[in-house]
Write a protein that binds this DNA or RNA. Structure first.
Lengths: 212, 212
DNA sequence: TTGACATTCAAACGTATGTTTCATATAAAT
DNA sequence: ATTTATATGAAACATACGTTTGAATGTCAA
């Protein structure tokens, strides 16, 4: 798995492999033996370094997922502020690029979104962390950004729903690869991802814009 | 769980409870003992009626998920054909209503979409069935419907991507209840669901429309 | 009443699970 | 050199798992 970095300290290797496996197969489908085998360490190492399995899962979110989330958000903010005129399409593009191409490797991105969707579907303790430290502030901020070009009297609630709508499209195209591949008959190569970004910019750009 | 219909035959009770549990917690997080306890039957009943656990999961899709999917699609088709002028918003509304209010009970809908997202995230044998019998024909059909009001020269690929985009918003608002609730601070009552439909119609309607 | 069939049941099977134990190794501090 | 703290190792623990077994029920035609 990953790169078998036998140089890395055990604790790091465990986190790496645990994250990959949890994302890929879900918490219950992964055994601690599977993780320690992938991390090439002793069975007891997990309980030594993390106490128990559940806490390892939480630690994956604490020390891996959250920081990565911040990186993505930073990327998004930066490409937004580097523009003068803030338009619907500009926001959609910045968002789509941050989440679909952005600062993460393809593998990282897949893991990241899979872990997220798992928590969305059946929240565990980790969800509390994610919601509080990432989702809430991110969508509040995004809603504020949208206010710039949306009708002045639009309530915050509607702004939030627009932010969520835009996000949902991006998340779907990243998460539901298998289905998208199956339906469009296209692989997720760079060319197709660029096309996806264009699609998202078009669709969400118009979706956020005025109706005529 | 559900309604404890001790009158129903064992096989049906098992399917009912298995579907609810698989949707709620995922395949690996549910034990056959948990299912038989919920279905109030003997442990061996699952292996007697379905052979083994994996096949029960598949049977849930075969005999429950697929038919329900057809019901939703029928509802959508019907409310589409009952209109004269096919507009972006009309399609978005028919779709949003079919998936968010439509012919399913709230409980059914939640199960339905959770099972679906699970298969999207990590396809099992069931995905083959779902893709072939539902996803492919549905999105092909939806793309054809869109053609009516989209630029004539638009390739099928782009039509499909638009169909997928629209669908992703709907799926998200149905699937990610916890997050939506958390972020908007609103419960999923009838009023809020109506608001969601309006949001989707607005957003996707414009997203599908011409850009000016 | 008999026999054949379908279904349910309690009990057990073998294996996999998360976790613990305790002995050993490594290396820095005294 | 001895102690101390940190980390790894092999083995075992108790429990939970999916599945199988074979006896006990019920059902209904012959």
């Amino acid at each position: 798995m990953s790169q078998g970095n036998k140089n890395d300290p055990t604790k790091k290797r465990i986190l790496d492999e645990a994250e990959a496996l949890f994302a890929q197969k879900g918490y219950h489908a992964v055994s601690v033996r599977e993780i320690t085998a992938a991390a090439e360490c002793n069975l007891a190492a997990i309980n030594y370094h993390f106490g128990h399995k559940k806490n390892l899962y939480l630690e994956v979110f604490r020390s891996r997922w959250l920081p990565r989330s911040r990186r993505v958000r930073a990327h998004f903010s930066k490409s937004l502020t580097s523009q003068k005129a803030v338009s619907p399409k500009a926001v959609a593009r910045a968002l789509a690029e941050a989440f679909l191409m952005g600062p993460l490797s393809d593998e990282e991105r897949q893991r990241h979104h899979q872990l997220m969707v798992r928590e969305l579907g059946q929240p565990t303790e980790a969800f509390e962390m994610v919601a509080e430290q990432v989702l809430q502030p991110f969508f509040k901020g995004l809603a504020e950004t949208l206010r710039a070009f949306m009708p002045e009297d639009m309530e915050e609630e509607r702004l939030l729903l627009n932010a969520l709508s835009m996000f949902s499209v991006i998340l779907y195209f990243s998460f539901a690869r298998v289905a998208v591949t199956r339906i469009t008959d296209r692989e997720y190569d760079e060319q197709f991802k660029a096309l996806l970004v264009e699609q998202i910019v078009e669709f969400c750009g118009k979706g956020l814009g005025k109706s005529y």
